[in-house]
Each structure stands twice: as structure tokens, then as C-alpha cells.
Write a protein that binds this DNA or RNA. Sequence first.
DNA 1: TTGTAAGCGTTATCAT
DNA 2: ATGATAACGCTTACAA
Lengths: 303, 303
Amino acid sequence: VLAVATELGYSPSALARALVTRKSRIVGVVVDDIVDPHFAEIVRGVEDVAGGHRYLTAICSTDRSTTAELEHVRALRDYHPAGVVFASSGHADDASAHSLGAAVAEMQRHGCVVVALAPRQFECISAVVDNEAAAYDITSYLISLGHRRIAFVEGTAGLFTSQRRLVGFTHAMAGAGLSPKLCFDGGFDYESGRNAALKVLASTPLPDAIVAANDAVAIGVLMTLRQAGVDVPGRVSVVGIDGTLLAAFVELTTVKVPLYDLGVLAARIIVAEHGEGARPDTLTLPYKVTLRGTSAPRPGNAC
Amino acid sequence: VLAVATELGYSPSALARALVTRKSRIVGVVVDDIVDPHFAEIVRGVEDVAGGHRYLTAICSTDRSTTAELEHVRALRDYHPAGVVFASSGHADDASAHSLGAAVAEMQRHGCVVVALAPRQFECISAVVDNEAAAYDITSYLISLGHRRIAFVEGTAGLFTSQRRLVGFTHAMAGAGLSPKLCFDGGFDYESGRNAALKVLASTPLPDAIVAANDAVAIGVLMTLRQAGVDVPGRVSVVGIDGTLLAAFVELTTVKVPLYDLGVLAARIIVAEHGEGARPDTLTLPYKVTLRGTSAPRPGNAC
DNA sequence: TTGTAAGCGTTATCAT
DNA sequence: ATGATAACGCTTACAA
């Protein structure tokens, strides 16, 4: 009986099953932009475990708008997803934060598992890395190389992740008795890096080193500096944070955040059918300072 | 009556609706790897229009395995998707091609719209760019710059897209009375570019220019050459094909393929509820040769 | 253990 | 027009 069913290519309707069990095998991933390698790597992690369990992975690019996030969450809700992972960071001045929080709470009441991969303003499981410590460590590394005038290019204004990284930089500088005042406005993309580098170039003297809030910014800085004839890392060192594939391509010194693993972990939590007893509400994954070709000891320094 | 429903935050169950209409508002996108910017840009296009119509976008990374593709298609089928877009190219030696074709045909019989964005072995709507012409044009451009010894780094072996681009290169060279024999094995990724560049470096003399099968390969070639002290574009020009954001970052001369637009178009075809009369089975979108900083006239050439 | 019936939340059909 | 009802294809609870 079952043999002939298989032979006929029978496959149960996921729709009908989901309707009655009130839970579909769909996991939503909300990201800023799937084109950003940072998020693409996370999504790949989610997808690999979700797909392995025959779950669908639905992506939602929000371009950093909480309103768009809300829209996507509503669309997802209609499908009773098994879980949704919020890959992007929340931000301080968020008018729709309350609506989003309510929508998230509603999903959770319906049995949807939500996990955040960055600081958010609603209650949920979260898997993160310590962004403050990461920024602290990479800055300390630069200091250990003998650099004194170290600039920081900030991430997108208002994002919690940007704030943590700035704090890490500031603490590392202050802790070494250095001034953490050389900060430039930024944003988490290449163009922001270019703009910041242009400002750096216009001011004198050049800093010894620059730590960028993420890889994309660092690469913008790096390319712009080199195009202007500045020797990196001979004259100024440039480092990022993220550890995307991009960074490897251009030999950027950075701190590798386990993006893929974060995605894998989030998906595992969601597809873990049997609530495996006590699961901590917040998991912290380790990062790794990755030395490559854009950082070097300060010239004339016996390092 | 309806007022209170809205007020209570009522939203119809997409699951129940899909069950009865035999068509869910889900569009699947099968790609090689969502981390590859080529595919991420396509997916973003799909998502923007799908999401705008409140459809879910389910991504399926296959790592170029037709078996994995088949698995994903089966998983998708259980949800009766409105459509699925195949973003990656098919390949010549494909054992599971028949099974895939059967699965695709079955979906289509169930009313699922399938559109391919590269050559495939099954019947469906397709939206593509002329890869042969693109390779031909960028090669011709190099020739017009005075280059004679031009090398080609191939894409992933067996992929139809790789074959088309190689043919374009070969024709352009032969048409100019040049030898198209300087070809290196490759693959559509950065590492392949590195490996090919290493081989180029080991052989003498250096070619005047190198056309890579895509941007990732071109960047691998570019970085490796420069690390070895070769002046690009002073000594050798390097160009790619694809026009991803990556190419802009490193100022790579390339041919811009409208990846995002391809995705948008595919999604539009799928969500267009009313079969708008006669829709051609194959649409061809234009590409654009994009001149940047990795190509220059041959030294000593009055160009 | 095996079978039967109820119900999930819609759309669609058919009387009224 | 308006409203009741069957059916979509499953899961699950309950009866045999």
C-alpha cells in the first residue's frame, strides 16, 4: 500500500498538515539586505539546517526599516512559521518598536520560536557575539603594534551593534591612555567607508591606523586610501570587523564573527522539535581576531 | 462586523487559503549559493516584487548539485508555490536532469509558473542575457585597446553559462585573427581566479590581458597578480563579467549583467495574476560593458 | 492494533 | 444579493 504510494510519487501536503497542526515548516529570516555578505552568510547557515530538515527558508530584506520589518512579520505570520530569526540589530530611535514587539509576542503565543542574532527590544532567545569585546580586542591589537593616533569609523547611527562597537573602541583607547576622539560618522556600507576616508585624507596629520565598524566600511576606507596613494599598511593600518568573504579577498585584517554558525544555531533552536529541557535565553559565540595584510607595526617602532 | 475584525488584528490564514485554492503565495528561488553576490542580487530583485505583493520568498542554495536541486524542488512542491525561479545554469553532464525535468513538469501541471534565468534542460519561461555576446564584447574591447595575447579563465566546467562565455571569447579572438588558445581551467569563484593567476605567473611571457569568466574569478586574478607585483592595468589588464557590487569596490572593468532586474522580471511574471495575453517564452535583457580601473591600453600602443 | 469521524480556516458552489 | 454547505488534505482523538 505504502509502496505504491511512494511509487506514484506521493508526498503529503505541507499546507494541509500545517493548517491542522498550526505550525508550518517554514522559518523566516529577517535581514537588512540579503546582498550584504554579512547577512547572506547568516542566511546560508539557517538554510543549511532548515533545508536539511525539509523546512523552507523565507527571507525578508527590510533595508533597516522597522516598518518594513513589521510588514514582513505580518506576511510571515499568515503562514504560521515554525520560527523567525531576526538577524539585524535594533536601533535606539525606533518609533515602531512597540508595534513590532506586539507582533512578535503574538507569534510567540502561537508557538513560533523567535531568535535574535543582535540586540533587539523584544523578548526572545538570542545568539550573539560580544561586539564590544570584539572592537576592544582589535583596537588593542593596533595599540600593541605601536599605533597611537587611531581613528574609528562608526557604523550606522542608532543601531545597537554600532553603539557596542564604538564603546569597545573607546574603552580600549582610554585604557591605553590614548584619545578616542578621532571618530567619523559612518554607516555599515562601502560608501560610508569612502566618505570617511575622504575626510581622513582632508585632515592632517593622517592617523596611524583606522578601525572601521565593519568590513564593508573598512574596504571602502582601504580602497580610497590606496587610490589616494596612501600606503596601507605601510603608512596607515586599516582593520574591520565581521570576517566576511570579502575581507579575505582583499586580505583585510578583521575580527571574524561566526556569521554562518550563528545562523546554524538559530535554525537548530527552531527545528529542535523536542524542547530540549533548559535552554539558556542568550548564547554568546566566540569571535576571532584575524590578522592579514592591512595591518602592520607603526613605522619606526621596535615592535 | 468587519471593523471589529480589523481592530482585533484579524488576518486570513494563508495556509487555509492556499489549501483550497491549490496555490500559495510563495515563490521559490533556487540558486547555487546565496552568499555569492551574483545570486544575492537576483534574489533581492525577486524579493522586492514578491514581498511587495505579500508573497514569501523561499531560497534554496544547491551548491550546484542537481540532486540538491531536486530535493529543494520536492520540498517546495509540498507548499504549492505560485512559482519558482531557477537562477543558476544547468550543466551538460547531468545525471539527474531527467528527474528534475519530471519534477518541474509536474509542478507546472499544478499551475506553478517556473522561470529560468540561465540555460536549463527543461521547458519553461526564461529571462536571460546573451552571455556569448557579453564575452565577445568585453574581449573585443580589450583587442581595441591593442592587446594581442589575451588569456581566458573559464567558468565552472560543464555549466552552459561557462560554455557560452568561452565561445564568445573564442569568436572575438578568432575574428581578430588572434589565437584563442590561452585558456585556463577555472570555476566561478575567487579561489579559481587565484589558481589561474598562479599558473599565468608561472608561464612566460605574461599575457597582455586576461578576461575572467566572472567577477569573482577576475578579482582572484587581480589580487593575486598585484600581490605578485604585477602592475594592473599597467602591465596586464584584467576584466570580468557580472557587474556585482564587488566589482565596483575594486574598480574592476566588467560587463554589467542586470542581475537585480532579472530577478524583478521573474517575480513579476510569477505574481502577475492575470495571464496578460501573449507573453514571449524567452526574454533577453541587455548588458553593459562597464569600463573601470583594471583595463588600460597596451603599453607602447598609440591607442 | 486498526478504522472512523471531526475539525483546521479558507474558497467555491449552490440554493434561497 | 445573501447565506448556508461542501470540499481542500491532512492530524488526532476516539471508538471498535
